[in-house]
Design a binder for these strands. Sequence first.
DNA 1: CATGAATGAGGATTCATTCAT
DNA 2: GATGAATGAATCCTCATTCAT
Lengths: 196, 196, 196, 196
Amino acid sequence: MNVQLKDKKECIFQHTLVLIKENGFHGTPMSQIAKQSDVAVGTIYHYFPSKEVLILELYNYCKNKIHQYIFENLDENISYQKKFELVFYRITEFNIHNDVIFSFMEQFYNSPYFELEHCNNRDGIYEQNHFLDFLQEGINNNHLRKIDVYTLTSAFIGTSVSFSKSILNRRVEYDENNLKELIKIIWQGSKQNNEI
Amino acid sequence: MNVQLKDKKECIFQHTLVLIKENGFHGTPMSQIAKQSDVAVGTIYHYFPSKEVLILELYNYCKNKIHQYIFENLDENISYQKKFELVFYRITEFNIHNDVIFSFMEQFYNSPYFELEHCNNRDGIYEQNHFLDFLQEGINNNHLRKIDVYTLTSAFIGTSVSFSKSILNRRVEYDENNLKELIKIIWQGSKQNNEI
Amino acid sequence: MNVQLKDKKECIFQHTLVLIKENGFHGTPMSQIAKQSDVAVGTIYHYFPSKEVLILELYNYCKNKIHQYIFENLDENISYQKKFELVFYRITEFNIHNDVIFSFMEQFYNSPYFELEHCNNRDGIYEQNHFLDFLQEGINNNHLRKIDVYTLTSAFIGTSVSFSKSILNRRVEYDENNLKELIKIIWQGSKQNNEI
Amino acid sequence: MNVQLKDKKECIFQHTLVLIKENGFHGTPMSQIAKQSDVAVGTIYHYFPSKEVLILELYNYCKNKIHQYIFENLDENISYQKKFELVFYRITEFNIHNDVIFSFMEQFYNSPYFELEHCNNRDGIYEQNHFLDFLQEGINNNHLRKIDVYTLTSAFIGTSVSFSKSILNRRVEYDENNLKELIKIIWQGSKQNNEI
DNA sequence: CATGAATGAGGATTCATTCAT
DNA sequence: GATGAATGAATCCTCATTCAT
């Protein structure tokens, strides 16, 4: 029963993601979501009280997927540098291989929906709080330069997002070497005493 | 006459920008643009054949504003590093002080509109071509690391965009010192032989 | 078993009345009736084949309640005038103390539902047939003026309904003296040879 | 221009009245009003922001029609009794000959719409305030019995309404003699010192 | 050039009803 | 009997666009 519910919501989420990537929020009517999900319009309203709530729940669903992918099974025994590189690597990989989620998240952050969410959840963008924590740890332990952690996070995430977008938009085959170079750039720029 | 035309278009552009930042593309009907611009709906259709074209022209209008601001009067006699830093500084300043344009551009890039534009104009994001040229020059002249220029551009622009967004979203007073640190990061990471 | 059935129908009736007074026929979906009655929607459809039938049965349920209240235990040994006054008194008291039924009946009579019912049951309004009979008796026995009995009934019932509505709408505490005055008016106007 | 506006609103009002008498508020979709009025749905929304407001404005439109009909050109030189009879006569005539308005008003008063209106305008029913004033005058000048004016108004209006409804529902040819008898009833009941 | 009334396709949402469990 | 998930027709309303003045 509970499985069924989860399955149906999941099903609606997945098809909504595809449609939104293709046509945007407003190019995606509920009727189309219903058709793709192979349910009646009314059924969607059985699970979500409104389109807005559907979008908002979808946002949380995606956020969780991202976090799980990035922060789960992060070996604590490797050096901070390795972790830094691994996290960056994972964000980027996730974005590139989950283009429907990536596209949705970017649209979401740049839409009025985000304001709604943002009111409750400060530090919203890309659940930066997890990233903030991770980078703050690096600063505290002298792995990273002692600067405003928000600023550092901007460099960290913005670089990954922009790179992913560039790959996806140019519809260019993703070359792992480029990602490795990018990681070098961001590590070189962020690490402690790189001025010596 | 020509001035009048430019003025009226300009007027429509400005009010559209404000409305779109506030309410998004689809929360901004033509009727509202008309009301804010103090003209009749029909008048807008006198200047633009459709809403889509209005948006597309607005995009080009903004693009030009940005380029003018960033690349005009760029003293050729200063060192590449200074120019690198200046360009980064200018992008970020522009974004922060022109939030309606910044918001519009971000919405645009993450909307289906961009696809339309993108078909004609390759290398679309943030008119990366100018930035691409600028960074390519740095690579060619051994100021920057010899890596894929698109990748480098991602780091350059993504960092600025993300930082600007962080300032604007957190509604935090912008601290120039943080921007200076950010510039250090991106320069340290990008410059040639920083591994020596 | 039969008790159970009656109880469940009764329960549904009562909650429907409250909801309809509050929100009207069309502001009262089956789902809400179900929720208030603490049963599933399907259960309602077990007892009533459709919403229309539910409403129609509810109408008959109310009609019977009203008649029982008004005409049962009507002492035949008192004078016609006393009976006339008592009946008027009872209608009004009933309306005022059973506002959910009163409101439902008034909505019903002024809705297209009534047409449906009316086709089968002529003389529908307020089950005027009982009142018609009662007043016809007064006419026949020279207690009341010899005029069209429908016209007389209009004066009789319309006055009571309008008075009740006035009390209920103004949300004014009901003053029995006013009702007594009203009864004087209607009796003075209706009784035989009041012109002498 | 102003005439056109008034004409279009008037046109919408008239067709709405017919439809509502036929099918009730909720059996009358905007699309049908549009079709009957020979305009597009959007046009209705050009004149009225919502269905609710259309209904509310229609209510005021009807109220005014009724008042004009009843209280305009009321010869001040005739006796109070004559005026009393004339006003009663006019209400009833109006109801019977304007069945679409009458039906609308009755539905309105017994619907949740009325609550909305009622909040602003106390003494709402049948714009009783005008009737209240008229009857209060009769009480003050010793033409009518000294009782609560609301109670008196209930008898006055309720009787007329009920009579009109009886005519209209029974689809019986209206016999003016019955109305004259009714007027006798109500006058006999209401006039001063009728007990002597 | 400018206006804004008119259009109607299209979208979000509701709700009476069904039916498998 | 009882449940409530599923259905989809029907409703209200929006808004890009047109065109007569």
